[in-house]
Design a protein around this nucleic acid. Structure first.
Lengths: 255, 255
DNA sequence: GAAGCCTCTATGTCTATACTTATCTTGCGC
DNA sequence: GCGCAAGATAAGTATAGACATAGAGGCTTC
């Protein structure tokens, strides 16, 4: 009898993963302990080994299991869990929040690259890159402030583009897909200019997002995004979207 | 002598993924375009369809491809790329940075839960939870400041634990695996107390990490971590860690 | 006992095949 | 022309079988 009352949408591998996860969380299988091997689990769950493999790989990716050839699979002792951040274009973020998007370029010029940026991009100091600063607005209020350096060598076709009118972020996303990216978060106090552009006070703590992308030609662009005060970047919990919070509390932004 | 000049580290599915990625990045297959179906690719790459499927699923997870049954696979128009943040226990972070770890509990008591925390945990306001504040040090200098609420109902066995001595973070990681987690980043100005504990000045911008975990019994714990000034949380670039710095750029015909 | 070799096992990966399922297309009846 | 049902198609998923390979553990040798 296939019970599917609680919405168990039945891809077999996922069911197996869920059951194994439950056994771990409920401590039937304890930290560091070795769990039955794939073949045994395949018998227990009446599935092919490949299916069990898929399930266990999933849990290993989540950081719950440690798998090694010949040694078998054991429950991770100090699980390093992973959370994923989705980076979409600003306009979509703003619009998804139900606000009207607008965009203003504050400055744009070719400029020799300063030492810190050069280091981050692994480019010779002083090389001429396109440097631009822009503000993204939601409903007319400043949402994000971006300070971007673009390496035209890695973005062919960019030469003729007029970023005073076009959104650099979107142009790059659509026209210069990357092979490698780095992303980092930090915090910084708003300086005088940032405070003015974001319409806040100097010294206000800002969430800073630094992002650099590369393709096979080299670095494409690096950008430092300063978010509006109180902005929250949240990650996707990952796997088990359960249903405890009866009222899915989508936390309102902090004032 | 294993000559693998072009770095083809052999798992066939990964090779296929890499090649498809290359075709996208090099714009052989353009944004929005439909790519050949799995069967055709299987023939082209001389692989089974399952293998091609695995490769394409990988790229879809990365956000590069959009796949729909019957409709086929197309290159994503506005790729929303994903980056993953690894959350390990603080001690490991500190030690990995080559510093000596220490830990000090600043306060711990049972306390009625304030409205904002109650909302976040979906618990009735005023319920008694364990509230604790602690500082993590690296080489004696403050590294992180944590403000944690623990729901003993969801963490059986916690009643008798003495967090004045034991590291709450580690105890929870090892003894209360979770099913669901949420993580968010924001920035805040250090208040008087935070400034003192982190040995910095009041108003200093701090990177804040908020993390809440649940298991099948309900919310386990929520913690607000304030990082030392200048702290950087970086994500794993993801898939293609390449080696441009003067590395072998598999240079195609560059226009 | 330490070092080195050997063997066997559990996972890693791939294949061929089959069936399921969503959804686009087509064609029929009106 | 319109609506709806039938068919076709591409991805989704599962399976049994096979071989590859890392590496733990035992064995031998010095």
């Amino acid at each position: 009898m296939t019970d599917r009352p609680a919405g168990s949408t039945s891809p077999k591998a996922l069911n197996i993963a869920r059951e194994v996860r439950r056994r771990i969380v409920e401590r039937e299988w304890r930290q560091g302990e070795r769990i039955p091997d794939e073949a045994d689990l395949a018998i227990e769950f009446d599935a092919a080994r490949a299916t069990v493999n898929k399930a266990l790989q999933l849990l290993a990716d989540e950081g719950l299991l440690d798998r090694r050839r010949r040694a078998g699979t054991r429950v991770t002792v100090n699980p390093t869990r992973k959370a994923t951040v989705s980076i979409s274009i600003v306009r979509e973020q703003v619009e998804q929040a139900g606000m009207a998007y607008s965009y203003r370029v504050v400055a744009q010029r070719r400029s020799p690259v300063p030492p810190d940026i050069a280091a981050r991009l692994a480019l010779p100091e002083g090389k001429l890159l396109v440097h631009m600063r822009a503000v993204h607005y939601g409903d007319g209020r400043p949402f994000q402030l971006e300070d971007r350096w673009i390496n035209t060598c890695s973005a062919p076709g960019l030469e003729g583009v007029d970023f005073w009118q076009l959104n650099a972020n979107e142009w790059l996303v659509q026209n210069a897909p990357y092979l490698h990216a780095e992303l980092a978060f930090t915090a910084a106090n708003a300086d005088r200019r940032e405070a003015r552009l974001l319409q806040t006070r100097q010294g206000q703590a800002l969430l800073i997002m630094q992002r650099t992308t590369w393709n096979d030609l080299g670095p494409i662009t690096t950008v430092r995004v300063a978010c509006q005060p109180g902005h929250l970047i949240s990650t996707e919990g990952g796997y088990a979207r359960s249903n405890w919070p009866a009222g899915e509390t989508r936390t309102p932004d902090t004032p």
